[in-house]
Amino acid sequence: MTSAELLCAREGLGLTQSDLARLLGNNAETIRDWERGKTFTPVRLAAQLAEVEALLEEATERAVTDLVAELRAMPRPRAVVYGEGERPQQGDVARLGVRWWRGVASKAKAQVPGARIGTQADFDAIDSEL
């Protein structure tokens, strides 16, 4: 796998270097070095990326289904997402990353009329104006 192939695959999965490193059991500096061509990518990397992609597809499908159900049960359907600097501590969002979660929220919102997506600060500001 070339450095450009890795970069394209990672970006295609919607992962940051840190997210991919966490999923592969590496550190972000290693991913950065591979993507810059400073070091060669390991032979096993293509297979590992296929596993990550399968994990993401399964987790995304499950998370969208769960979030749609939650949103439909709410009187004012809202999905809370995280900013780039925020780091959830548990669950799939912590493991798969905030970008992944924002993608889940977007897919779920498309299935629930009137649903809104925002950070907790967004919703706090909206609620304080009501």
Rank of each mutant, 00 (worst) to 15 (best):
L130C: 01
A115K: 11
T30K: 09
A108C: 10
K38Q: 11
L55D: 08
L20Y: 03
G114W: 08
T65G: 09
R95A: 14
A54W: 02
E53D: 08
T16D: 14
A4V: 13
G114K: 10
S106R: 15
E70W: 05
T41H: 00
P42A: 01
E5D: 15
D127G: 14
F123D: 04
E84M: 03
L56I: 01
L7E: 11
G12M: 08
I31W: 09
R62T: 02
T60C: 11
T39L: 11
D33H: 12
L49T: 01
F123A: 08
R72N: 11
R32D: 11
E57Q: 15
S128C: 07
G97H: 05
A110S: 14
R95P: 02
V93H: 05
T60F: 12
Q89N: 04
E57Y: 12
G12N: 08
L45N: 07
L7R: 15
E86D: 13
L45Y: 06
R36F: 03
E5I: 00
V64H: 05
G85P: 04
R72L: 10
G25H: 08
S106H: 13
D92R: 13
A121H: 12
S18D: 14
R22S: 12
T30S: 09
A59T: 02
G85C: 05
P42H: 07
A21N: 02
E29S: 15
V68L: 02
R99G: 12
E129N: 07
L55G: 06
L13E: 02
A28F: 11
G118K: 13
T119W: 05
T30F: 04
K109M: 13
K109F: 05
R102V: 07
R116C: 13
L71E: 02
A110Q: 09
K107H: 09
R22Y: 10
R62N: 01
A73V: 01
A59F: 03
V104Q: 04
L49D: 07
T30N: 10
D122K: 05
Y82V: 07
R99Y: 11
L49V: 03
E57P: 06
A125I: 14
K109S: 11
G12P: 14
V98R: 08
K109T: 06
R78C: 13
P77V: 07
Q90M: 09
E53H: 06
Q89P: 00
I117C: 12
A79D: 00
P88D: 11
R10C: 04
E70M: 07
W100R: 03
A115L: 14
V98Q: 09
K109Q: 15
V98H: 08
W100K: 07
E35W: 07
L55M: 09
T41S: 08
A105C: 13
G118S: 08
A73C: 06
V98F: 04
P75Y: 02
L49P: 04
M74K: 14
E58G: 00
C8Q: 15
I31S: 10
R32I: 04
G37Q: 06
V98M: 04
E86H: 03
E70S: 09
E35N: 01
A50M: 08
P75K: 02
V104L: 10
D66E: 15
A108Y: 03
A79V: 02
G14M: 09
R10S: 02
Q48F: 02
E11Y: 06
R76G: 08
Q48S: 14
A4T: 14
R87I: 10
T39H: 06
Q89Y: 00
Y82L: 03
L24A: 11
R116F: 14
L49I: 01
A54K: 13
A69W: 01
S128R: 12
